[in-house]
Simulated assay, not measured.
Amino acid sequence: MSPLLGAIRADTGLSVATAGLLTTLPVLCFGVLAPLAPRLGRRLGMEPTLLLTMVLITAGAAIRLLQPLAAILAGTVLIGAGIAVANVLLPGVIKRDFERRVGLMAGLYTMTMFASPAIAAGLSVPLERATGLDWRCVLALWGVPAVAAIIVWLPQTRRHTRVSAADTQAAAHPVRGLWRNPLAWAVTCFMGLQAMTFYMVVAWLPTLLSDAGMSDVTAGVMLSLSSVVGIVGAFLAPLLAGGAARTAAIVVAGSVLYVIALGGLMVAPIAGAYLWMSLLGLGQGAATSLALLCIMRRAPDIRHAAQLSSMSQCFGYVLAALGPLALGVVHQAAGGWTIPLLLVITVLVPQTLAGVLAARDRHVSGYPDEPPVRAELLPFPNSRRRLGTGPG
């Protein structure tokens, strides 16, 4: 929606605050609705729940075709809700179905998370101009990939088999003690802080470059460049992350690239823009993919993966929604960009420490007060064949 905000405001008379709300609503949904995802997954099953998320996204895109402002807000909330639940459950899919190739699949998954928004942001305005459609129709067109995903995913729902009432009741118990586990909090803080720094930089980078004298068009290209390079970082980092020591080293290396890029933006924002954007993209991509990789590797089974993903993304996206606001306030008070960039660098310190702690080769498990649950039913059917576990 961001590239079309100008047209939306001109057509509807939206205030700056309401326009900002439209772009913030999905991120808030990611955080607020994340705790509901494991419950839905346990109640409906993994595959049907993921199908439901794509139906919500399609419905939200269609609703935004309607004229009232309330329809735009409602459609945006539905899209945010669908993405929020899918964000939490998809790491569980990778944990269950690709346990021996978690690094590769985590890299591919994170790569799509960087590439898809970049494609949508880059094509929305050209689509509007090439087709002559208004902004409502252009936004609705982005529901078409969700329809395609429904068609592709529909056969997967056949894997959802019936289980006994006793097994269903046992598997419905949430993981206990997760919010008191230090390793779970390390993963959560790493996920939260990297999301916060990511959105802080992405939200204000074009403005920073424009204030330095760069044209608005070129500033947008620079943001796209960082996203494109981020695809490379997102793909390579999980592949290179072997054991705990190597993963921790890549966490630190990614933060160092981040710091160099932010430092470069302070001293030579235009002269070295291409270099800074490349380093920034590599650092952001590595941090995002490693945060998701830690969720998968620190969870002993799919049940823990779903709830650890919920915990970390709830905390992470709430921070992500507040980060750009805080940076904007600091920028307004400071009257420049040096102090705000130093603030981002400061946040990178605990982010790196949390990433190193989250890289430890341990599992967030071992809670003695949990009820006995058969491993192949945690938390969804059809896990036994994938995990290679037996009853007991």
Rank of each mutant, 00 (worst) to 15 (best):
G242N: 09
P300F: 05
A140W: 03
T389D: 10
A261W: 00
Q169A: 15
A140P: 05
L280S: 09
G392A: 14
S116F: 10
A165M: 08
F30R: 01
F380P: 01
F190Q: 13
I119M: 13
A253V: 11
A115G: 08
V356Y: 07
R384G: 15
V251L: 09
M214R: 05
M277K: 08
T389M: 12
R96T: 13
T247H: 15
V356G: 05
A333C: 07
V88I: 10
L275F: 12
A170G: 14
R159Y: 09
S365G: 09
A120S: 14
A271G: 12
F198H: 14
L353Y: 09
G103M: 05
S309A: 15
T288M: 13
P381Y: 08
G230V: 01
A195K: 02
L293E: 09
R362V: 08
H160I: 03
T110L: 13
S289G: 07
P269I: 11
A146F: 02
R386K: 10
V144E: 07
L378A: 14
M196H: 07
V373Y: 02
G233P: 13
C294T: 10
R159D: 13
D167W: 05
F190M: 13
T110Y: 05
G143P: 04
D211S: 09
A166P: 08
A74H: 04
H160T: 15
A149G: 12
S312P: 02
G243A: 11
R246T: 14
G281Y: 01
S309Q: 04
W337L: 09
A10Q: 14
M105C: 07
G285H: 04
G336L: 07
A234W: 07
R176A: 15
A130R: 10
M113L: 15
V259Y: 02
F380R: 00
V77W: 00
R64S: 03
V251W: 09
L209I: 12
P174I: 11
A120P: 09
C314F: 05
V187E: 00
M277H: 04
S215M: 08
L223V: 15
A358Y: 02
P372D: 13
G285Y: 05
T110R: 01
A237D: 00
A172F: 11
P3W: 02
L208I: 14
L193I: 07
G328L: 01
T23C: 08
A287W: 05
L225V: 15
T110P: 01
L89F: 00
V55S: 06
T352E: 04
E47S: 12
M111A: 14
L51P: 03
P182A: 07
A37E: 07
W142G: 11
L377F: 14
A120I: 11
V356N: 04
P368Q: 07
L325Q: 12
G285K: 02
D167L: 12
L21N: 11
L280A: 12
N87E: 04
S310Y: 00
G220M: 10
D211P: 04
V201W: 01
G31K: 00
R360L: 08
V16N: 10
P300A: 12
I270E: 11
A287D: 06
G242M: 06
M311Y: 13
V251P: 00
M311T: 11
Q313C: 07
G122R: 03
L89N: 00
L208F: 03
A334N: 07
A273R: 06
A354E: 11
I94L: 14
